[in-house]
Write a protein that binds this DNA or RNA. Sequence first.
DNA 1: ATCGTGCCCGCAAACGTTTGCGGGTAAAAT
DNA 2: ATTTTACCCGCAAACGTTTGCGGGCACGAT
Lengths: 334, 334
Amino acid sequence: MKQATIKNIASELKLSASTVSRALNNHPDIHKETKRLVNSLATELGYRPNIIARNLKSSKSKQIGVVVPEIRHDFFANALSGIEEVAYQKGYTVILAQSNEDKDREEVNLNSMYLHRVAGIIVSISQTTSDSSHFKRLIDKGVKMVFFDRVCDDVNASTVHIDDMQSSYDVVKYLVNKGYKKIIHFAGPQNLAICKNRKLGYEKALIDSGVLYSPVVIEGGMHESNGYAHVDKMIEMGIDNCAIFAVNDPVAVGAVKRLKELGIKIPQQVGIVGFSNNPITEMISPQLTTVEQPAFEMGKRAAEILIHEIEDENTVIIPSDIKLETNLIVRESA
Amino acid sequence: MKQATIKNIASELKLSASTVSRALNNHPDIHKETKRLVNSLATELGYRPNIIARNLKSSKSKQIGVVVPEIRHDFFANALSGIEEVAYQKGYTVILAQSNEDKDREEVNLNSMYLHRVAGIIVSISQTTSDSSHFKRLIDKGVKMVFFDRVCDDVNASTVHIDDMQSSYDVVKYLVNKGYKKIIHFAGPQNLAICKNRKLGYEKALIDSGVLYSPVVIEGGMHESNGYAHVDKMIEMGIDNCAIFAVNDPVAVGAVKRLKELGIKIPQQVGIVGFSNNPITEMISPQLTTVEQPAFEMGKRAAEILIHEIEDENTVIIPSDIKLETNLIVRESA
DNA sequence: ATCGTGCCCGCAAACGTTTGCGGGTAAAAT
DNA sequence: ATTTTACCCGCAAACGTTTGCGGGCACGAT
C-alpha cells in the first residue's frame, strides 16, 4: 500500500538509490541490464517520481500561476483556456486563482503562488488595483511575470494586449462616418489602462473627425448593470440619432436591454457598439456590432512568452510588449 | 539576493534550525524573547516558508486538482469559480486542467495531478470517456476524488450533480401540458450519464403522460452546430406544432438559429426548451425556456465535500451523492 | 606482473522543513 | 548541598530526489 519510491526499488533490487535514479533517467553510466531491471520493477510497482521532492532538490518547478479577475467572464475563460493549452503542450501545470476584482485578494493569491514557488505568473489585474507595489515586490524577488489584457504599465514585465486606443479610435471613426449626430462613450474605471486608452481613442477620433461637440463620457463599472443604468443618464441629454460606444460587451448588452425596454429602436434611433465579441453579442437581437478581441490567442501568447522567459535562464530578458490585432465586426446594432 | 530560509535565519542569530522553526510556529518550548528576535529578523529578511519543502516533509499538500472538459463553457467556468472560491476560503490552491473532451488528455492530466501530490481531485468527465479505469487506479492509490455534473457512476467516489432524469421529466410534462402535439428530444452522447438520464426522463414523461406516439430522439453532440443540424433532420418528419427538448442550451440555441433561418415561428409553430440556463438564453430572441442548473453552487459543494474528505483522515469516508435542485425557467420559447 | 582505461556502481551531501528525544541551565524544593 | 522541576534549546533523522566524486572490477596494453 505504500508509495513506490526510488528507495523501495533500490532496496528491493539491492542497489543504491543513486543507481536507481540514474537508471530511471537513462544515465549512460548505468548498465543496460540494470536499467531493464529497474524499469521493469518500477512499472510493476507503479512507481511515479515525487515531483515535490524533485522540485525541492532542483528548486525549480513546472507550474505557472494565473491570476484573473473573474473566471466566469467569457473573455477570461477563453484566455485561460489558451494558457492551459500552451502549458499542457510544454509540460507545465496551471495553478489558478481569481481576484474577484479585489486588490487585497489579488495580493494574497500572488503571494500564495510565490510560496508555492511557481516558475512564473500570468496576471490580468483587478479593477480595484491602483498601485503595483505587490507586483514589483515579487518581480524583485525574481518571479517571472507576464501581464495580459489588463496590463500594468509601470512595472518592468512583458505584456500581451490589444491596441485599445487604436481599436476604439477605429470604432468611433466608423460611427462618425455612419453619420451619427453624437457619439457617447460609456467608459470603465479609469485606473485600468485598457479603459483609459479606450477613452483616449474615443476622444482622439472625435477631434480628428472635427466634430463640433465635446466628448460625452459616462464613467462607471464594466458590468451589464452599469450599461443599463447609463442609458437613463444619457436620456436626459437627449438621445436623438446618437450612438453609444461601450467600453465592453456586457455594458453594451445592458444598454441594449434598457433601450429595448424604453422602446427605443436600435440602430435607427440609437446605434451601439460593444467591445470584445463575446458570443452573446451574436445571439442578441439586434446583433451587436463589436470589436473582436482574440482572448484565446492572447492567453496562448502570454503563456508562450512566460515559458520562454522561464526557460531562457541565461540571457537577460528584455520585456516584450505584444499588441494583437483586433477586428471591427459590423452587425446590426450600428 | 538569496532566498531567506530557516537556515539563514538560524546562522544569523546563532541558533539552530529547529529553534527557528519552532519559534516561527509559535511552539511553547521557545522563549518569548527568542521568538521575538526570530520573527523580527524573518520579516526583515522577507522570509517565506518553502511550501515545497514543507509538503515533502509532511507528504501532504494543500492543492486540489480540477479537470473539466472545457474551461470556456459557461457552465464549467462558473463551477470552477465556485471551486476556487471555496478553495481560497479554506486555504487551498487550485491546479487546473482541461481535457478538451479527450479521454487520453483527461488521463494525462489526472496523472500529472497525482505526480504533483494534490490532496484531492475534482472531475467532470469528458464526452469521450467510456471506461473509468484511470479514475479507479488513482482512487486505489488513495487519491480523494469528487465528481460533479458529468459524474462517473461506476466508481466509489462522491458525486455532486442534479437529478437529470427528474428535471427533464418535469420539462417534458410541462411541454405536454402546454398542448404540443409531439415532443422531440435532441439528445447528447449516451455514454455520458447526464445525457442518458435526460433521455430517460424524456421517455418516462411521455409514457406517464399517455401520449400516442413513440419517443422521437435525435442523438448527437452537445454543441450549437449539432442543434443546428438536427433541425433539418427533424423537418423531414413534419414539424407542425412540435416541441423540441434539447439536451443543453447550446444545442437549443443552434436549433433556434436554424428555425429562424427557415422562418419558422417560435413558439407558435415549434416550441423549444434548453438546459442549463446559460446567460445567453436570456438574451436571444425569443428568450429561451430552460432549466436552471446551479453551476457555481455545484462547484462550491464539490469543493466542500472534497476538502471535508481530505481533512477527515480518521473517519472512514462514505461517498456522498448530492443532488442539487433545478428550476424550470419559463420564458418565451415554450 | 604492472599499468592504464573503460565501465558500473555506491557514498554522501544537498534542497528546506519538521519533530522526537535528549541535554543543559537555572531556580525552586528538599 | 543535593535533587527536583521547569524552561529552553540543539542533534540528528527524515521526506524523495539528484549529483559530484571516488572506487572497484575486468579487460587489454605494456
